[in-house]
Every structure is written in C-alpha cells, then in structure tokens.
C-alpha cells in the first residue's frame, strides 16, 4: 500500500470535489448568450420581414422583368417595375463617392500615420472624426445648396438642380473619415520594426510608407474601403435631398437620379396603400439592396483574409 499526503475528507469524500456551487458562472453565461442572440435574432427578423412581401411582389411581377428591364414607374397609372435605373443611380453615385473618398481618405491616413508630428496628429484625427458625426441630412443640403450652386454650376452651366455629381461628391466627403480613420488604425498597428527595417536599408519616408507600411496594413485598408463603400451604397438622406427622385437610366452625373435607398425612403414616406403592389415593391428593392451589401461583405471578408498578415 502506498502512503498518501492528501487526507480524504470526512465521510470518505474526495477532497478535490467541488464544494461551492458557482451560480454566477451560469448566470453570466446566460446573460452574455442573450446579448449575442439579440443581434442575430434581429437580423433574422429583418430578413423574414423583407423576404415575405418581396416574395409576394415577385409572384405578381416576374423577377426577370424586375432585374432586366429599364423603366421604373411604380406610381404611374400603368406601372412598370424595371429596377435597373435605380441600380444605375446607386452605382454612379457610389462610384463618384469612392473616387473622392479613397484617394483623400488614404492620403489623410498616410499623412496622419507616417508624416504628421504627434502634436498635429492629436489635433487632426479628432477633427476628421467630427466630420463623421455630422447628420447626413446636413450633408444633403450642403450638396444641394453649396456644391451644386457655387461649385458645379460655374463649371457645368447646364447641370440640373438635382444631380448625381453633387450627391456623389458630398457622399465621398462623408465617408472620408471612415476610410481615413480605419486605414490609419491599420497603419498604426504595423510593427515599428518593419519601418526600422526599411529605414535601415536606406529607404526614404515615402518608400517606407508606400512600399512597406501600406502593403503591411492592406487588409485593414481594404476593410476600411469596403466599409466606406457599404456606407455609400446604404446612404439615403444625401441622395434623397440632392440627387432628385427621378429614376433615370443614364451615366451622365450632371442629371438627377434616383437610387435604391432614395426610392425606399420616398415611397415609404408617400401614401402607398399597405399590401398594394407599390408597397411590396419597396421590400423588393430593399431585398436587392440587402443582397448587394451582403455580397460585398462576403467579398470584403475574403479580401481581408487574403491580405491578412500575422505579425509575431
């Protein structure tokens, strides 16, 4: 028989047994699960509530007609439901916004992360982030009353009062802080050792920033771009105020256009009868928007994974 240093507890019980019930552990587990479940259930609920009227809509209007015809006149006496003009409006305005926001946002991020003195950064970054806090309706009127009136009219005298260009430009300005701030975070997370390595090889600041830091931060920068683009696609107020509400199958940004979001906002605010086909069209467009942004998020997750670097 072997001797033991561990005495058995009175009654021959295992001295290593759990003696205190830990209720706190169980409670916190349930609370945290509930917190996570709320957002999942909400997403699920949204999908269902959009999907059901959409399916009713597609029972009346063939999905091919919806996706591939070019006239969108749901409120006319003889309504037509070709969604392409709305997609076109969304694409044109988003493209303008991206063309503005990516160079300016990435440029600001590189300046803040690599060039600005700590003092300048301390002032500039919060100032930039204030831009993200401006209500979008204010941006909308800024586009309509200032950009169109005083910037674009002198350059393009024939421009319409409501036009895609002003909405796109201002939407671009709106998403600069998103892109700049997230890209700057990604660059700041690049280990200092990589910069030292580049400088020690005789690289200049520009060569270090553009050829080492930006590639090293690429996954974060791509994520910032995609988030910015998603915000642009989903943005409603600027386009409702400044781009006009006329479905317009054109690439000319000087004309007014309607986007998917501004159709939803305008039709939803108007007096369409619940249960009517016009009413259901709102959900059909919403579903399309949801599918597009969902697809973009999938692509962005792929891109981020592809470029992700693990630093030791």
């Amino acid at each position: 028989m072997t001797t033991t240093l561990v005495e058995s507890a009175p009654g021959g019980l295992n001295p290593l047994r759990q003696t205190k019930p830990r209720y706190g552990e169980k409670v916190i587990r349930v609370i945290l699960f509930a917190a996570a479940a709320v957002s999942i259930l909400t997403t699920f609920g949204i999908v269902i509530s959009v999907l059901i009227p959409s399916l009713e809509f597609f029972a009346e209007i063939p999905i091919t007609e919806f996706l591939f015809t070019t006239t969108w006149t749901p409120l006319f006496a003889n309504p037509q439901y070709g969604v392409l003009p709305l997609i076109m409006g969304t694409l044109v305005i988003t493209l303008i916004a991206v063309l503005i926001a990516i160079p300016l946002g990435l440029g600001s991020a590189i300046y803040l992360s690599e060039y600005a003195s700590p003092k300048a950064r301390k002032v500039l970054k919060p100032t930039l982030e204030v831009l993200a806090g401006i209500p979008t309706v204010v941006f909308g009127f800024f586009a309509l009353e200032f950009i169109t009136e005083f910037v674009l009219k002198p350059i393009f005298p024939g421009i319409q009062v409501f036009n895609a260009l002003s909405a796109g430009i201002v939407m671009g300005i709106m998403i600069i802080p998103t892109i700049a701030s997230l890209s700057e975070d990604a660059m700041a997370a690049v280990p200092a050792g990589l910069r030292d390595g580049a400088y020690a090889l005789g690289a200049t600041k520009r060569q270090t920033a553009l050829r080492v830091v930006v590639p090293a931060a690429l996954s974060g920068i791509v994520a910032a771009f995609v988030l910015g683009i998603s915000r642009a696609i989903g943005e409603t107020m600027i386009v409702t105020v400044a781009a006009g509400l006329q479905p317009n199958m054109t690439l000319n940004p000087l004309e007014g256009m309607q986007t998917m979001t501004s159709y939803i906002a305008a039709a939803g605010a108007g007096d369409v009868a619940t249960g009517s086909i016009e009413y259901k069209s709102i959900f059909a467009v919403g579903l399309l928007l949801f599918v597009i942004t969902f697809f973009m998020n999938m692509v962005s997750i792929r891109l981020v994974r592809k470029y992700r670097q693990a630093y030791q």
Binding site: P191, G193, L194, D196, G197, A198, A200, L201, P215, Q312
Partner: peptide, 16 residues
Amino acid sequence: RRRIGMVFQKPNVFPK
C-alpha cells in the same frame, strides 16, 4: 544607412 546596414533583435521581415 545605405552604407551602414542594421539587423534587429526581432527578425523584421517584410510581409512580402
């Protein structure tokens, strides 16, 4: 720095 190179404590290879 081009004439006087440097190797650091942590191997700082570039993500390339």
